[in-house]
Simulated scan of single mutants.
Amino acid sequence: MTDPTKDPRFLRDPYPTYTAMRSSCPVQPMPPGSGGRPSYLVTGYAEAREALGDARLSKDTAVFFAGKESRRRLHPAVAHTMLASDPPRHTRLRKLVTKAFTTGAVAQMRPFITRVTDDLLDQWSAGEPFDLVAGLAVPLPVIVICELLGVPPADRPDVQRWSAELFAAGEPGVIDAASHAMADYMTGLIADKRRDPGNLLLDRLISARDGDDHLSEEELVSLAVLLLVAGHETATNALGNAVLALLQHPAELNRLRENPDEIPAALDELLRFDSAVSTATFRFTTEAVTLGGTDVPAGAPVLVALGAANRDPARFPVPDQLDLDRDATAHLAFGHGIHRCIGAPLAKAEMEITLRAVLVRFPGIRLAVPTDRLDWRHTRLVRGLTSLPVLV
């Protein structure tokens, strides 16, 4: 079969394709990639949740690609992050990170997030088009995660550019170069913080210990890069997708505008409705697995379509309708199991604060262009708008 996800129409609206695939079979083989072997795409909710929690599906890319010749030149700190590891290494790294990256730290950041949001929205002149992606959804999470890690303001434009380049689909040279630039920068920043320590997230990672265990230099750099990239990519796309969903559902938009205290409870449904991460990161079977009635051989890549799973009518009735009364807490937008996004509390705090500010300050917000003129990022991994022009 051909790969439907390569159709440009898929980028604009993948859900009809996902519905058709799920109806045919919730787990099905895709055409062979450059390695010559087929991958398997999971589109059903139950099957996705099972796959995300199955220890027989490994994320250790070093094992999968061992002995395979590759022209890629990704920096090891990017190629072998905590996301690309299994227990016990993953358990150890996540335990050390969790000690520094707590919900308490997120709570302490809320006044800063609010201040940055207001400063960004102050640049919006009434009557003039405002790109909600470029003007708010991109810079806010970058500023916040850079503040948490201690990245100086003067360096943040470079960090933002490198992060965007890491998702440059179809441009492996650009991705590889960005991985080295980001890792080299974080190596230097860690060295600076050792000379002049503080009490920010990166400082706490440097000093994080579990008994005699601590992070190696390579692990420190890798975690810093991972937190920097993952810490704003998800929030950027989630915020843009949420605002667009509300603009396309005026009744729900009006409801939150009139009752902004309902925004925290609405976040899970907004995240379910249009997942910022379309496909979970790489997994492969370490042994033959039967998933959703499909036999998946050992050594096969498995792609879990989180966006498809969140629109499965078997789990969420009438899934293509945004319903703020729905209990969507079981959504998979942040993944599931041991690899569930560690930055989920920060992403939700950013969404809550920014949605409240936008709806309260700009109650007449509306799209400045027809929806068919909106452009989506050209990657299957994440789902996000390249721009979102709005008016008040």
Rank of each mutant, 00 (worst) to 15 (best):
A66D: 09
M109I: 01
L52D: 09
R110S: 06
R92I: 06
R115C: 03
S85P: 06
M82D: 07
A84D: 13
T81Y: 03
R73K: 13
H75E: 06
A62Y: 12
F101S: 05
K95E: 08
A107C: 07
T61P: 00
L52N: 07
R56M: 04
G67K: 05
Q108I: 01
F64T: 03
A62D: 13
Q108Y: 00
H80E: 10
V78N: 02
V63F: 00
K59W: 09
T102L: 04
D86V: 02
A66H: 10
K68W: 00
L120T: 11
R71L: 06
R71H: 03
A105L: 15
V116L: 05
D60R: 10
R94P: 03
A84E: 12
L57F: 14
K99G: 15
P88I: 05
Q108P: 00
S58N: 03
Q108R: 14
S85N: 09
R110E: 10
K59M: 11
A77C: 12
A62T: 15
V97H: 08
D119K: 11
S85W: 01
G104R: 15
F112N: 08
A55Q: 13
K99W: 01
P111E: 02
P88W: 04
R72P: 00
A107S: 13
H80K: 10
E50P: 00
R115V: 01
T98Y: 05
E69H: 13
L121Q: 06
H90S: 02
S58M: 01
H80Q: 12
V97Q: 07
A84L: 04
F65M: 12
R94S: 05
S85Q: 12
M82H: 10
P87T: 01
F65Y: 15
H75C: 05
A105N: 06
F112V: 11
R89Y: 03
A51N: 07
R49S: 15
R73I: 04
H80G: 07
L96C: 03
E69R: 15
I113D: 06
R115E: 14
R110D: 08
A100M: 00
A51M: 05
F64N: 01
V63E: 10
A77G: 14
P87H: 01
L93M: 12
H80M: 07
D118L: 08
G104C: 05
H75F: 03
R49C: 13
A55F: 12
